[in-house]
Every structure is written in C-alpha cells, then in structure tokens.
Nucleic acid binder design. Structure first.
Lengths: 162, 162
DNA sequence: ATTCATGCAAATTTTTTGCATGTTC
DNA sequence: GAACATGCAAAAAATTTGCATGAAT
C-alpha cells in the first residue's frame, strides 16, 4: 500500500559520496568514528536512492545479502546516529516499524499529494510552504532542517466513485 | 514478513461528532458494534482536543485514571479500527511507538514543528499552507481532505548541544 | 440467538542494553 | 593506549493473537 512510486528516474545524488570523507568529518566533529559498518549502512541508502525507505530489519537483511554483515543491534544504533546527524531521515508513514530514507538536500521542500483511497501520489513544490515552515521554526527558535507537506485527498476517479 | 492489511479501503473521513450517533452508525455500516470501550477511546481523543496525540499505552493509562478501564489489547484494536474509519489519524514522531490524534475536517491545516533530536513538538497554523495544499489539489483535480505540514528541525537546546 | 467484542495471558515483533572483545584515532 | 564501536545474547518495549467469556443487535 506504499504508493511512493519512483519511476525509473533517479535524480543524481549530486551530494557527497557518503562512503567518503563527508561522513568521516561529520563523525569526527562529534568525536565519533568512521567504521565500515557506518559506511555500509549509509552506502546502502545511497544505492537505493532518495525516494526509497527501509526499516532496520531490511537494512540488516540487505547488507547480509551483499556480504556486508552488520549486526542488527548496530544497524539500529547506526540508523539513529545517521538520523541525528541529518544524513538519514525518519519517515512519517507508520507501517510497521520505523523507516528511514536518505535525507534530501538541505532545506529542500518536497510535498506529497496523496489519494487516501487508491494511494495515487503526486509530488509538488511550493515555496510558500517553505516560507511557512521557516516562519514557524523561527518563531519557536528552532533551526529548520526540512519541511514536508502532506496533502491527503481524493483523486478524481476515487472522488467520483464515492 | 507480516501481512499487515488494514481492513479495506475506507470511506472519506466522517464528519460527525463522534461520541454520539456518528460513531454508532459508522460502525453499523461496517457491521460492527458500538461498545463502551470504543466510545471511551474516541471520547478521550475528543477531550484532549485536536492538536494532541497519544500512544496506545497512554490511552490505556489515561482511561484507567478516569475510571474507564479498557484493556490494552482492546486499546490497540480500537486505535486501529478508529483509524481505519478515518476518525483518528496515525502519525509518527521520532521517539516511541505509534501515535494517534483526532482526525478532523474542521482542523484541516494544523502543522507540526518537531525537534528531530529530542522529539519536542509544537503545533502551529498557517493559512498559506492550506492555500498551497488547495492549489496543489486543485491542480491535479484532487479533492482535498486534509493537509499537514511537518517541519523537522532542531529545538534551541538541541541545536546548542550539537 | 447470533454475531461480534472484550479481557487476559501468551506469543510475536521491534528496539534497546550490558558487557567482553575488536577497531579507530 | 585510550576511547569508542561492534557483536552477541539477554532484556525491555511495543504490538498482535488465541480463546473463553460477556455484550450488542
């Protein structure tokens, strides 16, 4: 029922290759270390692309399949770490456990229009939304990382079927 | 892997005041029954208001405190039911389990500002966001039900701690 | 009377943690 | 070498389920 279709077009990452030094220095800034496990987890998310999300168990399984064993406990620890570093982000859709995806570029705002009946999803952008997010964050003294607008709606054919 | 099927596609969110007959007939339409437990759970969400969310354990505890015992298992079953009926809406914030809040037509745009580090949550409103949602929905011919903006951010103290 | 819902406890699933060992800086 | 991270297994949460009993229609 997860209707986030990412048709073939996978936008080029355009960001730093994570297995590399971006991760290393981000970690070092926090007094933490670059380990193969952390690289593997992040690299996996980069491999699957920006639109797709994985849960802890899936990350563990997929790494096993590619001969890059990382214990499940470490997967959990790493997901939380990368997430708190802003490299991954946790999803809003609670289908089972928590799920994560590669964090999009800083401050980018991408929004979803989703039909609650059939799951059809359209993406759109709107700078007014980002502004609203910035205003809200500013008002509470928060530092904005990202804002996502979810519009729940009925698509034309589902609306007709009602 | 678990088959996590919600009980079928649901009708558009109910518009009715829930404690009363709206709930009864919504249930009956589905061949299900009005029970004190279901009323209690829904009434609790109405009592705390539209902006606030609760997890299963919290619902259970709060009902205990108000002398309205509902077993935890039933709380889980009821949350899922009310959610699939469109009376509650599920959301997921950083820490803890799944959380639910009252789904309301009246409150179509209420937004969350969430600290991704400590989970602190602030609610805000912004009509520009609703307009953006309406414009997007209109552009694709969708009928808008609700729009929720989630702003991921760092609260002042967490930002300082980084 | 029939069908559905509840409560309880046990079973599952998901996530966290203690600790000995191995790694990174 | 010191501090940190990993793996493992056990513990703790979170959620679901089987079944006998109780309630709603």
């Amino acid at each position: 029922m997860t209707a986030r279709l990412s048709p073939g077009a996978q936008p080029p990452p355009a960001t730093l290759p994570a297995g590399g030094d971006g991760l290393r220095s981000s970690l070092h800034d926090r007094g933490q270390r670059l380990t193969p496990q952390r690289q593997r987890v992040l690299a996996l998310f980069e491999r699957i692309g920006e639109g797709s999300h994985l849960g802890a168990e899936e990350v563990h399984q997929r790494l096993l399949r590619s001969e890059e064993r990382v214990s499940l406990a470490t997967v959990y620890r790493t997901l939380r770490l990368l997430s708190s570093m802003g490299l991954l982000q946790e999803l809003e859709l609670p289908e089972g456990g928590r799920r994560f995806e590669l964090a999009s570029d800083a401050h980018r705002d991408h929004h979803h229009l989703v039909c609650v009946r059939c799951g059809r999803t359209e993406e759109f952008e709107n700078s007014a939304v980002l502004q609203a997010g910035e205003r809200a964050a500013g008002g509470y003294g928060f530092r904005l990382l990202e804002c996502v607008l979810n519009v729940r709606a009925l698509c034309p054919s589902c609306a007709a079927a009602e």
